[in-house]
Structures are given as C-alpha cells and as structure tokens.
C-alpha cells in the first residue's frame, strides 16, 4: 500500500460527484420531510407531522403491507428455486453452458418492458397463460392474484441471480470433501443437509439480504404490470411515494415516506455491510 498524495487526486472527483448528486439530495429530502412544502409559496415547518402521517395514513399502511407480501413471497421462492437450479447445474450435462446462458437472460431484461410483456402474458382473454390452461384465471383483476402476479414476474427475473450466485458458491466447494462424504455412505440428502448447506450458508445470507434490499424498491413492475391496481390493491410503497410526491406534489409527506423506507433498507443493508467490510480490507 502506497502513501503518495496522488491518491487524493484519484479519489476526489468521484467523492465530489457523490456529495453533489447523492448526499445533497438526501439532506434536501430530510429537510423537506419536516416541512409542508408548497412550490412557489414558501415552506411551513411542521415538525414530525409528516412522519406521524406515515403511520396513520391508510394508503401508506396498505402500501407497506402489500410491498412486504410481494417481496416475502418472491424472495422466498427465488432463494429455494435458485438453490435447486444451482444444485441441478452443478454436475456434468450436455449443453450446460448454453442452458446456463439462457437461464441468465431475464436478469438484464428491461423491467418496464417485462412488466408490459407480462401484462399480455397474464391477460385474461387471449393471454399466453390462460390460453394454455383450461381455466380463466383473473391474474390481474383479482386483488390477491394481482399481487401474486407481481411476485411471479419478480421470481422470473431474479431467480437467475440467486441461481448464478449459488452455482458459483457450489463450484467453489472442495471436491475432496464430497468424496469423503460419499464414502461415509450418507445419502444425497444427508450430504446436502450436513455438508453443502452449512458451507454455503454465508452465501445464502448475502443473497437473502441483497434480494430483500433490492426487492423492497419494487417500482417498475407494478407500474407497468398492474399500474398499482386493481384500485390500489398493488400500489407498492415506492409507487405510493412517487405519486404522493410527483403527482400530487405533497413533497413533505413524500419525503417522510421515503425516509422511512430508507431506514428500513439501511437496517437490512447494514447487516450485509458488516460482512462486506471484512472483504474490502
């Protein structure tokens, strides 16, 4: 490790950029959350009023609840499915590289495009799914099913992420360990339960925390797939915050809403960072 002064020249531009375009907006937003902000008319200080509204507002509460529901279902399935696929792909098979590549295609597909595309897939009359099954399932018009549909799209897009990470973790495990375990004549399930699972447990925790932090931001898919509907049944937290701030220009309340979300995400992420700090040393 070197000690030259050049290091500051290298680091400074990026730091200044983040200060201007992330830290300043964060402070700006924190200030707004204590005010009743009216563009062009001057702001009125309201103390913690906006934060109190977050907890008493019916829409905010239902937005938080529906976000949690969608996220918990999606992330749970993604982890299990991703791990199952990783175990499946962790052995020799024909065309493994090609199949693996196809499986990773959803990851970078434009979420907005995915949302609109799945709108046609879930469509009740003439959509792909209802065209293949003998029932007419109201995927998007039933409030409960609409939330499940959003989870399903998230599962489609993000299971490949869990799969890739778990596969990398499995391939990093030593082969000798497995040989020894097999000689001990344990069943496949026992090898998985007592050897594989404990060894990749740190990876599972990382993936879980990352997925939770990412999924809570959910915006694009509900925006395009359901538009928050039917009614406000799938108006997720980010969508509600966005509408409060940039459609109804209740900027103070929207800032308070967003800060509550920031705190929740930061709690999750700090668990993740505690682990990361060791790696970056």
């Amino acid at each position: 490790m070197w000690k030259s002064k050049a290091k500051f020249l290298f680091l400074l531009p990026a730091v200044v950029w983040v200060l201007i375009f992330t830290i300043f907006p964060l402070i700006y937003s924190l200030r707004m959350s204590f005010y009743n902000v009216r563009i062009g008319q001057g702001d009125v200080f309201v103390g913690l009023n906006n934060f109190a509204r977050v907890f008493t507002n019916e829409q905010a509460r239902s937005a938080a609840f529906i976000t949690l529901k969608i996220v918990v279902i999606a992330v749970a399935v993604e982890l299990v499915l991703g791990l199952a696929l990783a175990i499946l792909f962790n052995r020799a098979m024909p065309a493994r590289g090609l199949l693996r590549t196809i499986l990773t295609m959803p990851l970078f597909a434009t979420p907005i495009a995915i949302g609109y595309l799945f709108f046609t897939i879930f469509y009740e009359e003439g959509g792909l799914i209802n065209g293949l099954i003998p029932w007419k399932v109201p995927w998007l018009s039933d409030p409960g099913l609409a939330a499940i549909s959003i989870s399903l799209v998230d599962i489609w897009q993000w299971t490949p992420f869990c799969f890739l990470v778990f596969l990398a973790a499995l391939q990093g495990l030593s082969e000798e360990l497995y040989e020894a375990a097999r000689i001990e004549a344990s069943s496949g399930w026992q090898v998985f339960r007592h050897i594989t699972l404990p060894l990749i447990q740190p990876t599972i925790v990382i993936v879980l925390l990352l997925r939770l932090a990412e999924a809570l931001k959910l915006f694009d898919i509900p925006f395009s797939l359901t538009g928050g509907g039917p009614g406000t049944a799938t108006q997720v937290y980010s969508l509600f915050t966005y509408r409060t701030g940039l459609r109804f220009f209740d900027l103070g309340f929207a800032s308070a809403l967003s800060y509550i979300m920031l705190i929740v995400v930061m709690i999750i992420v700090s668990l993740f960072f505690r682990h990361l700090r060791q790696i970056y040393d």
């Binding site: 990026a14 983040v18 375009f21 992330t22 300043f24 907006p25 964060l26 700006y28 937003s29 707004m32 990352l210 932090a213 990412e214 809570l216 931001k217 915006f219 980010s238 915050t241 966005y242 701030g245 940039l246 900027l251 929207a254 800032s255 967003s258 800060y259 979300m261 920031l262 995400v265 930061m266 992420v269 993740f272 960072f273 990361l276 700090r277 970056y280």
Partner: peptide
C-alpha cells in the same frame, strides 16, 4: 462501503430532491 451504500439506496428517496 460508503460508495457501495449509494447502490442500495432506494431511488425513490432521491428522486424528489433530484427533480427539484
């Protein structure tokens, strides 16, 4: 870690001040 934390920041937190 400070740089990283920007990446996990919910974008909806900065979108309103950024707009202004």
């Amino acid at each position: 870690v400070w740089f990283l934390s920007q990446r996990v920041l919910p974008p909806v937190v900065t979108v309103i001040p950024f707009f202004l």
